[in-house]
């Protein structure tokens, strides 16, 4: 006797059950890999952790580490520099990447060549970038000073002068990360509906109006996502600072991640470093949520 078909609601219930069972292992792994370390970090942030006789000793200190954060001069300097660095480098990258992506999307000959050339910097490992730029920006033997010397300019210590160091790191970051924005924006350009452009051309719309009234509104979701991603990555900058300036001169290039690294690892203040890490994580999370919410709102309005 053939089985009777299940009523639709019962089928949905079974589907949900199987879906939950199927997803459970992945969720468990996710929880294990993500939530447990964060929970551990939270626990650490309420303790002083010292090592004696080969074992760690945890001493509960309540909110002391969190209370100390506003007084931390390095953290304050790092936060200010990080915001400046993230905003300036991200906006510059977005602007450059937009122009380059627009250019490459409009040409037919040599598109692959240009695309390859523009993404080269992102393929270079950070350690190599650090070495290359450190040599180029060297006061005594660097190419940059040799070049400006051709025009009679005096050499500058691009990484060692307070007024220049953060700007120099921003230049390196722009060189390194513009290809990332370029790739995402180029993908956005290439997926734009061509019939809208054809209709606009039939209506006699000029290139500038086309850019302002068609391309920009259509590209807005891609721009917002790219900006959000890049801003979050810029907030977490570490390798370029570590390799180029070590946070100096003074605190001129101190950034949030580097301060966390110093406190947590170099100085071995795990409890305080954990509190600082959670502060940094919260900041990045707020930034990510704000960026995504703004993008979603804009998209809905469009």
């Amino acid at each position: 006797m053939p089985a009777l078909p299940l009523p639709p609601m019962a089928k949905i219930g079974i589907d949900r059950k199987w879906r939950a069972i199927g997803l459970a292992p992945s969720l468990l792994v996710f929880a294990g890999l993500t939530l447990l370390p964060i929970a551990n970090l939270v626990a650490m942030s309420f303790h002083d952790i010292a090592w004696a006789d080969g074992i760690s000793r945890w001493t509960f200190v309540g909110f002391r580490h969190y209370q100390a954060l506003p007084e931390d001069m390095l953290l304050r300097a790092g936060l200010g520099n990080t915001i400046f660095f993230a905003v300036v480098s991200t906006l510059t990258q977005m602007l450059l990447a937009f122009v380059l992506a627009l250019f490459v999307s409009r040409i037919h000959r040599g598109r692959v060549l240009y695309r390859t050339l523009f993404i080269l910097p992102i393929l270079v490992p950070a350690i190599v970038i650090g070495a290359i730029w450190k040599l180029m920006l060297n006061y005594d033997f660097g190419l940059v000073n040799d070049f400006i010397g051709l025009f009679g300019a005096a050499p500058r210590d691009w990484l060692g002068e307070r007024a220049l160091a953060l700007w120099s790191v921003i230049v390196v970051d722009v060189w390194h990360w513009t290809p990332f924005c370029f790739l995402l924006l180029l993908a956005g350009f290439e997926s734009l509906p061509q019939d809208v452009y054809e209709a606009a051309r039939v209506d006699g719309v000029g290139p500038l109006s086309e850019l302002r009234y068609i391309t920009l509104p259509l590209m807005l979701p891609t721009i917002a996502v790219t900006l959000g991603f890049r801003l979050i990555l810029a907030f977490k900058v570490f390798d370029e600072i570590y390799l180029l300036t070590g946070g100096g001169p003074g605190t001129a290039t101190e950034v949030l991640s580097f301060t966390v690294y110093r406190r947590f690892f170099t100085q071995d203040r795990a409890g305080y470093g954990a509190a600082m890490s959670l502060f940094a994580m919260t900041l990045v999370a707020v930034l990510a949520i704000t960026a995504m919410t703004a993008a979603r709102r804009r998209q809905t309005r469009s």
Binding site: Y139, D157, G248
Partner: peptide, 13 residues
Amino acid sequence: PQTGGQGQAQVIQ
């Protein structure tokens, strides 16, 4: 002239 930017590697160099 830029002592504040000189590390061990630059001094040896």
